[in-house]
Design a protein around this nucleic acid. Structure first.
Lengths: 340, 340
DNA sequence: TTGTATGCGTTATCAA
DNA sequence: TTGATAACGCATACAA
């Protein structure tokens, strides 16, 4: 049995190189400038020989920078979350940071545990993409000095930056597009708007904007896990007499559920308009394609990391909000009326 | 400015409770049994008051169990990877383990860095879902005693368990289904089969099985990023005279690319059969739906964690292989021939 | 049952 | 420019 070959320690490297461990430490702590040429060479070669790599545990214990960024995701199976995550990752790579991702799977207990885990690993910043109401944990984390970035969510009374979609502008773009394509009444379908989340913002803007445009508006608040509700609402909405109808889906999950229900009911997409917030892999594969508002996920991820890095240096600034505009991708699900 | 309130240490708790830090340590190290009733009470209440939580860094430094499992993913945007990850996560939760996920985004350098990061955090096991050929790093990790589980991939000469799809059975099921539905020739489309990966297994079985069945077989090896190749191959395959044609897609990414190309070319899905390995969110939303072989992702994830835990105790056993059968979900893309 | 003392690998403080 | 030494927070062998 090959006994576990311990990883080389800084002491062993120092010994091998014939120098003190302090010097080796300096070499790896970004103080190479202060070392003589010979010293550097001896250290590199010794480290090379022993395959030395600094132990982040010991580093973290001392309180130095960890180079670690945490990300908390509420639902890893949501493609939008994954897209954002990808953006965050790219940004981290460019910044020379490591990213540690935890998924809470929408379980508050799990979320709390993950938060504890991340914070205990001395992360230098946390990107939160979770809808839960774990305010306490986040608060304490923020107060402990960890830079915080909230995605798609605002949290009052906490020193955290916020990055996400300009929900008001997005809803406006959606409604303008629907009107332009000749739809005369709109049903907005959303998951339950939790406190202070972007769902709330979208819903409110929808209602306000429809009122302003004098556009007949309906709203359905439902879970995606209960397709019955959606089918029921669609049936009623479709049956009702009135101008040309369209559905506005508050996010990708809803879009998927709606398309499924529309299929079940045998309704004709396009005739009944469908517009979804969030672009999905398959929006161009259905027949007709689904019109969407695509969020600039890479830019959002990058902005999140930028926020964290700014906080690390000048931390006194008040919380900021970075809002991004979506891009409209028009497809067959919102077609002009047929000239009959 | 509210100065960062350091996290409470074990020493402070001991002080607050009027006991020694050893006792507090015992309390949190699973030796509560050995403490007196009074002792326990004092410790809990003190810890409660100070909001104490053990510092895993310091713990890890000492060499104790970390309760951490790492997972290395090659492409987080692959829905199949996410599905597996979800299964792994559930299993971790049940086992009381924490999961730390790293995505290499198919970048070998990144992959190497992630591996170093994970190993340095004293993970108790690593689940690898990456196609790269970072054998050296994995080898050294395995030899250092860290239990390893390979997903969808075998690696010779390394002490690692393997969990994944029974590729041979899957290909057999696919071909049997296609034949049964009246298809007489098959085009297999796959990404480049890297060494020892499951792609290789599927490809080989496809060719062997088609030969055995005397089924006319074609093969296209392509990247999903170059749809031209797929379109070209589809056009040719469709144009060629012969029995009823079908496409077998080696994985979800290929399925998506194929459906897209089929649409571009204006071919009729179903008339030209399409069967994909891996179930996708939207397979029932296209018209017609896509027939797939769904992998039991939750079971696979659970098996991976089971392997790790077994290794932790009895480590002497030879590497094992856990293979799972897929479930066929028949949809319109593989329909019986029309009676004309 | 409880406490004391030492070491884990690193960085920071100080002295040389 | 370099090196000795004391923390960091915790677990553990050992003593009481």
């Amino acid at each position: 049995m090959p006994q576990p070959p311990r990883r080389a320690t800084i002491l062993e490297v120092a010994h091998e190189a014939g120098v003190s461990k302090t010097s080796v430490s300096r070499y790896y702590s970004g103080e190479r400038e202060r070392l003589s040429e010979t010293m550097r060479e001896r250290i590199v070669s010794a480290a090379e020989r022993l395959g030395y790599q600094p132990n982040p545990m010991a580093r973290g214990l001392k309180g130095g920078p960890s180079g670690l960024v945490g990300m908390l995701v509420a639902d890893i199976r949501n493609p939008f979350s994954v897209a954002i995550m990808h953006g965050v990752e790219q940004a981290c790579r460019q910044a020379g940071l490591s990213l540690m991702v935890c998924n809470s799977d929408n379980d508050p207990n799990q979320e709390k545990a993950q938060l504890a885990l991340l914070s205990s690993y001395r992360i230098e910043g946390l990107v939160v993409n979770a809808a839960g109401r774990h305010s306490e944990a986040l608060h304490s984390l923020a107060q402990s000095g960890t830079p915080l970035v909230l995605l798609d969510r605002t949290l009052s009374d906490v020193n955290a930056d916020q990055v996400g979609l300009d929900n008001a502008a997005a809803v406006d773009m959606a409604l303008d597009h629907l009107v332009e394509r000749g739809y005369g009444r709109v049903l907005f379908i959303t998951e339950p708007p939790s406190l202070a989340s972007s769902r709330q913002a979208r819903l409110e803007r929808f209602q306000a904007r429809c009122a302003a445009l004098k556009l007949p508006a309906n709203t359905l608040i439902t879970e995606v896990t209960t397709p019955r509700h959606i089918e029921q609402a669609l049936k009623e909405f479709h049956r009702t007499r009135g101008p040309r109808p369209a559905i506005l889906c508050a996010n990708g999950q809803i879009t998927q559920a709606v398309i499924r229900s529309v299929k079940v009911l045998g309704l004709a997409v396009g005739e009944i308009g469908v517009l979804g917030i969030d672009e999905l892999d398959w929006c161009d594969l259905t027949d007709p394609g689904i019109t969407t508002l695509a969020q600039p996920t890479d830019a959002i991820g990058k902005a999140a990391i930028d926020c964290l890095r700014q906080r690390q240096t000048g931390s006194g600034d008040p919380p900021r909000s970075h809002l991004f505009l979506p891009r409209l991708i028009a497809r067959g699900s919102t077609q002009p009326p047929l000239l009959a």
